[in-house]
Computed example of a mutant assay.
Amino acid sequence: MIINAFDLSANYFELFDLPIQFDLDLANLASRYRQLQKVAHPDRFAGASEREQRIAVQYTAHINEAYSTLKKPTQRAIYLLSLKGVELDTENNTVMDSGFLMEQLEWREQLDEVKGSTDPDAAVAKLFQIFEKKSNSLQQQFVSAWQENTSKSLVLAASLAKQMLFVDKLLSEAELLEAELDD
């Protein structure tokens, strides 16, 4: 059976037969995801041995995790860094650029002030634009640092990926605020 072809050791890019790079064709990624799911879905192995069923479940989980990681820019950046042996360790290493931290504090204050503004919908929409612009800028900077591929540039790429995490969190908080305003 095809179960022997399932390779749980393949990195996520290899799994989807994609180049190891930040910029990806997300439509191609989604297409490859669907193809892999068709081949590996555990329902296809209902009549197979217990071992083959277990492998199909593990492989499907691997496919799902890989897809979830690669489709999100920040998670993709973190994964790319991990392939180079660079771990962010966001739990213990919270050192950030002071300018970025100040900027983030200002944005948080602006989020807090949205409800009290005269036009909260416009205020949250403006913050979305700011956060998305910052996210795009960080992604572009990450690509430059990643492509340079020196130890110094990888340290910079890791710092940028941490900043991307913070901006993602701000975007999530803005989405929650927007939903709260809609209610």
Score class of each variant (00 low, 15 high):
residue 1 M to V: 13
residue 2 I to T: 08
residue 2 I to G: 03
residue 4 N to A: 10
residue 10 A to K: 14
residue 11 N to H: 13
residue 13 F to W: 13
residue 14 E to A: 15
residue 14 E to W: 05
residue 16 F to D: 05
residue 17 D to G: 10
residue 17 D to M: 05
residue 18 L to H: 04
residue 20 I to L: 11
residue 20 I to R: 12
residue 21 Q to W: 03
residue 23 D to H: 13
residue 23 D to T: 15
residue 24 L to D: 11
residue 24 L to V: 13
residue 24 L to A: 12
residue 26 L to H: 10
residue 29 L to V: 09
residue 33 Y to D: 06
residue 33 Y to A: 06
residue 34 R to K: 15
residue 34 R to H: 13
residue 36 L to G: 02
residue 38 K to E: 11
residue 39 V to D: 00
residue 40 A to M: 03
residue 40 A to N: 07
residue 42 P to K: 06
residue 43 D to Y: 11
residue 43 D to E: 14
residue 44 R to L: 13
residue 45 F to R: 08
residue 47 G to V: 03
residue 47 G to C: 01
residue 50 E to W: 00
residue 52 E to R: 05
residue 54 R to L: 13
residue 55 I to S: 02
residue 57 V to M: 12
residue 59 Y to E: 05
residue 59 Y to V: 08
residue 60 T to N: 09
residue 60 T to C: 10
residue 66 A to W: 10
residue 67 Y to K: 12
residue 70 L to T: 12
residue 71 K to N: 06
residue 72 K to F: 09
residue 74 T to C: 08
residue 74 T to Y: 06
residue 75 Q to V: 02
residue 75 Q to D: 15
residue 77 A to T: 03
residue 81 L to Y: 06
residue 81 L to R: 08
residue 82 S to W: 09
residue 83 L to T: 15
residue 85 G to A: 13
residue 86 V to G: 08
residue 88 L to G: 14
residue 89 D to S: 14
residue 89 D to E: 15
residue 92 N to K: 15
residue 92 N to Y: 15
residue 96 M to K: 09
residue 97 D to S: 09
residue 100 F to R: 12
residue 101 L to W: 08
residue 101 L to T: 14
residue 102 M to Y: 07
residue 102 M to F: 08
residue 103 E to D: 10
residue 104 Q to C: 07
residue 104 Q to A: 12
residue 106 E to V: 07
residue 108 R to H: 10
residue 110 Q to C: 00
residue 116 G to M: 03
residue 117 S to F: 02
residue 117 S to W: 01
residue 119 D to N: 10
residue 119 D to W: 02
residue 121 D to A: 14
residue 122 A to H: 03
residue 124 V to F: 00
residue 125 A to V: 03
residue 125 A to F: 03
residue 126 K to S: 09
residue 126 K to R: 06
residue 129 Q to H: 03
residue 131 F to C: 02
residue 131 F to V: 00
residue 132 E to P: 00
residue 133 K to T: 15
residue 135 S to M: 01
residue 137 S to C: 02
residue 137 S to E: 12
residue 137 S to D: 11
residue 137 S to G: 11
residue 138 L to Y: 01
residue 142 F to P: 03
residue 142 F to R: 02
residue 145 A to N: 06
residue 148 E to N: 11
residue 152 K to A: 06
residue 152 K to C: 00
residue 154 L to M: 13
residue 155 V to Y: 05
residue 158 A to R: 08
residue 159 S to Q: 14
residue 162 K to S: 14
residue 162 K to T: 11
residue 163 Q to G: 08
residue 164 M to N: 07
residue 164 M to E: 07
residue 164 M to L: 15
residue 165 L to K: 10
residue 165 L to V: 10
residue 167 V to H: 04
residue 167 V to T: 12
residue 170 L to P: 00
residue 171 L to Y: 00
residue 173 E to D: 14
residue 175 E to Y: 01
residue 176 L to F: 01
residue 179 A to G: 05
residue 180 E to T: 10
residue 180 E to H: 04
residue 181 L to T: 01
residue 183 D to F: 00
